[in-house]
Design a protein around this nucleic acid. Structure first.
Lengths: 186, 186
DNA sequence: GCTCACATGTAATCCGTTACATGATTCT
DNA sequence: AGAATCATGTAACGGATTACATGTGAGC
């Protein structure tokens, strides 16, 4: 059966322990979301498909008071996951960044408007930086409990990424101001 | 009419001067591609739509020996572009990064396999870094000719972005080696 | 004459989001 | 009692890629 990267998000989450679709989404929202987002509209149909393919197994969960289906990864699911993790060849990377896009075309704006764009952009990355920072304690707790250090390292990577953009906004602002004062000087 | 960010890529490219669909793609491939990619499958239908909406104007070009349509931005097209550039509110940012995704789930691998993943990832970012570096001279030439400094600044931003990921791969490798020698030591 | 770059377009498909619909349980 | 959270799912839509189809002009 054909699996996309989103299928592996589900498989990877289930490998860390049995979960419901709802829980997968919740975990993804504080971890993979920042470099691979998933939505309910993908998760639930995909859980069905993966179960039909025998990569995961669902059981109705009477232990919980709630009506919910909890899925576990099967042996062939684990095998598929490992196969993907080891698969050689190109790693898909894609960036869609409206802020940089606008900046590229910002010669249609005047100096003040350009600075405002950079401020909006920096504010966004600062917000994301903060959001990621609040997750750190729970990632540290997870490392203590499960011994999984990669969650924390990945989170730090995400934080460094946001920091870079904040710094780039500052750098661009300085450069624009230099150019403006050079051309407008005296 | 409804315009998406891809429409503004076309509008922005045409604002720098009249172009064919083919040329728009070629220019985008060495500039916006790294933070907002576009394909022919979007460009040609969108050119039609933008012309119908009066934001651009196409003229068959007999000056060139070839059969081609060259589009120019209209006054209302420029207005739409500026309106977008100044529009307040959220800037869409999206990252899909299979390398970091795999790394997050890489506790299913052994130490050597994890390092290999990081090497593949670093190789990819190095390749992109190099690709961007080769564009620098043409961006500098464009700055000289057209006075547009933003193309160069955006390119430098893209280069800094690739540099960060190369450095992050190194950093992660060091961290993994530290952990490995700690647990395997003595 | 051949190949490469120029050039335009469409159809199928995939991937993903958003909005909607529904309902149970827990907490206040 | 009411609100928030837990929980599952689907349908419509949008955005984008890929593959395909087709043809011309320029340079070797």
């Amino acid at each position: 059966m054909e699996l996309g990267n989103t299928s592996y998000v589900i498989l990877g989450m289930l490998r860390k322990g049995p979960k419901s679709g709802y829980e997968i989404k919740a975990k993804a929202d504080i971890s993979t979301r920042f470099f691979w987002a998933v939505s309910y509209g993908q998760i639930y149909p995909e859980l069905k498909r993966l179960e039909e393919g025998g990569l995961i197994e669902g059981t109705s969960d009477p232990a919980s008071g709630r009506q919910r289906r909890v899925f576990s990864i099967t042996a062939s699911g684990e095998q598929a996951l490992r196969e993907w993790l080891k698969r050689p060849g190109d790693l898909h990377t894609e960036l869609r960044h409206e802020g940089v896009l606008r900046f590229f075309f910002a010669d249609a704006l005047d100096h003040e408007e350009r600075l405002e764009l950079l401020h909006t952009m920096r504010a966004k990355h600062r917000r994301l930086h903060e959001e990621l920072s609040t997750i750190v304690p729970s990632a540290e707790a997870a490392r203590e409990e499960t011994g999984d250090v990669l969650g924390l390292l990945t989170l730090e990577t995400g934080i460094a990424y946001q920091e870079l953009f904040v710094e780039l906004c500052d750098r661009l602002e300085r450069r624009l101001n230099e150019i403006e004062s050079d051309s407008g000087g005296s």
